[in-house]
């Protein structure tokens, strides 16, 4: 069944964002990876059967304008809080994918009573006690995107074995914005772990069994520091669980949110 997505260009932080929205039910804000997002994914469509899915492109990524002033992921989280207020969306479920997980963790800690549920999938944002977050600055755009997948065939099916030059340009734009706001320390905040205790709502921490981008030890810290959280490991998946095991991720999210 074709899902009807609507597209708007709301303003936030002085720039125009691209926001896609579909479905009905409790509001679910989906925050994409540091490599942006394909326009449509089976996981997004499936989630819209259960939720009012809000799918923005981060400012500076994809088709959303770049806020030249932005310097941190916390800035980005505050901007999204403002966007939700403008849209009249209260108590959202936050679903953060990888880099988006970091943004959603910041959003949850800065407004603990205005978060219904928090789902982190291979979330960046914390310095892993063991291992390092993969440094995209040292690898090519394609190699970095591929590193998010345990099964190369899953990558090929979505992006093509040889991604288009347009896709490379988009990844380079994403990469530039990643550098602008998360260059050093690279892809984590030293202060975030100390703020996670403020979280009130239940949290689910999901990790691909073979995540080669963010070490699972970071997920263990999230699960330990968030007051009401558990860690769920998804077999046969890399970092991009929503693209490699979409049905499993949707099942975990809907069950966790009592929407299954």
């Amino acid at each position: 069944m074709a899902v009807a997505w609507t597209r708007t260009q709301p303003q936030a932080g002085g720039v125009a964002l691209r926001l896609d929205r579909a479905g009905s039910g409790p509001p679910l804000l989906v925050l994409h990876h540091d490599i942006g997002s394909l326009e449509r994914l089976p996981a997004y469509d499936a989630l819209s059967q259960h939720f009012d899915v809000l799918l923005p492109q981060h400012p500076g990524y994809g088709h959303s304008e770049r806020p030249e002033w932005m310097r941190s992921v916390r800035d980005l989280a505050v901007l999204y809080r403002g966007l939700l207020a403008d849209l009249g969306v209260g108590r959202p479920i936050l679903l953060g994918l990888g880099f988006g997980g970091w943004i959603s963790a910041e959003m949850a800690t800065m407004a603990p009573r205005d978060t219904e549920r928090l789902v982190l999938v291979g979330a960046m944002g914390i310095k892993p006690p063991a291992g390092d977050i993969l440094d995209q600055a040292l690898v090519s755009h394609i190699d970095y995107a591929r590193a998010g997948f345990h099964d190369g065939a899953a990558f090929d099916a979505l992006y093509g074995a040889e991604p288009s030059t347009d896709q490379l340009v988009e990844w380079d734009l994403c990469r530039e914005m990643n550098f602008r706001i998360a260059w050093k320390p690279y892809m984590y905040s030293a202060t975030l772990p100390h703020l996670l205790g403020a979280m009130r709502a239940p949290a689910l921490v999901v990790w691909g069994e073979h995540d080669a981008v963010v070490p699972r030890s970071a997920g263990e810290v999230y699960a330990a520091r968030l007051p009401d959280a558990r860690l769920e490991v998804v077999a046969a998946s890399g970092h991009c669980v929503e693209m490699e095991r979409p049905a499993e991720l949707v099942r975990l999210v809907t069950t966790f949110c009592n929407r299954g």
Binding site: H141, T165, D172, R175, F179
Partner: peptide, 20 residues
């Protein structure tokens, strides 16, 4: 690295970086 070069060179550099 991303952001180092002029935006007008972006397409040329990403093609170069993949050997295209």
């Amino acid at each position: 690295p991303a952001g180092y070069s002029s935006p007008e060179n972006r397409r040329g550099f990403v093609e170069f970086s993949t050997g295209r």
